[in-house]
Design a protein around this nucleic acid. Structure first.
Lengths: 148, 148
DNA sequence: ACTATTTAGTTCGACATCGCACTAATGGAG
DNA sequence: CTCCATTAGTGCGATGTCGAACTAAATAGT
């Protein structure tokens, strides 16, 4: 393989890794102590998509192992942000529901993060982000599919 | 803030996070047991840039805390991939040097990863990656600068 | 020269992540 | 109906990551 090509792909994944790391740190600095990006992401997902999903469905949505989702949901439950109920369709399974406190947590978080997004937007054009996101989504899908 | 705009930026960082996660897992599956992406990245960096750098310089290059780099270098030393020597210019500091085993580790890793890159390249045009990388680098730099 | 401040690196403790093994429930094959 | 394989979720142990506090060396200010 061409060395230049290899370096290019390594650079790509390297930049992606560092951006993920920096953005995560930046976001968590705005969250109440003890709460992490996954906590926020799950609550946000439950609002954007729909609550009442199973833990496994959430694990798949975020591409994390089941055990990780168990841990994350444990934290959300401890904070009273979600409620876990039995799944009427499947005795092995459960369903995850938002509480009012969960919705408030999400709204507070968004309110405190918005200014950072504004700053970022003022330094990097929204339009370019809009062009890149579909590409990233396609790449994500490819990597996911390759993971058989 | 416009809800659509917010969703766009969240999507961007979300895709980035999942790609980072999936690519990391994929790479580590090719590495000898016990070795991780940071191990490979540091060795690769020492070859691409130059060895003899200080641990702090490496921590800065990868945007990780000093303590994390100490841990990573400990693993590399335990595997005999790098050698830590005093820094002749500064008694507080050290320098990190590659060993032959370290170079071999890097070459073996690249050899086993190349096929995956080929597959990826066949599904997603290299040219698009080449366009996106500079954008990601710019975004990375912005996030880094915002981190005063 | 002397002291205070800053800096490089480590140690330690807290915690997120994840693989492995386990339990309980489901579903399919005969 | 009975058994066996599969699936959802959890407990546990190992490990990566990182903040806080520490040591030792360098540097700045007087």
């Amino acid at each position: 393989m061409d060395n230049d090509t290899r370096t290019l792909f390594f650079s790509f994944f390297n930049e992606v890794g560092i951006i993920a790391q920096l953005s995560r740190t930046a976001l968590e600095a705005r969250l109440p102590k003890g709460l992490t990006l996954p906590h926020f992401s799950v609550v946000n997902h439950l609002i954007r998509v729909k609550d009442g999903q199973t833990p496994l469905a959430l694990a798949n949505a975020f591409q994390v192992p089941k055990t990780t989702m168990t841990h994350t949901l444990g934290g959300l439950t401890a904070n009273g942000f979600v409620e876990i109920r039995p799944n009427p369709d499947d005795g092995r399974s459960k369903t995850v529901w938002l509480t009012d406190a969960g919705r408030r947590f999400r709204e507070d978080a968004i309110r405190s993060i918005d200014p950072d997004i504004e700053v970022f937007k003022s330094q990097y054009p929204e339009e370019k982000i809009r062009e890149i996101v579909p590409e990233l989504a396609a790449i994500r899908a490819l990597l996911d599919a390759a993971r058989d």
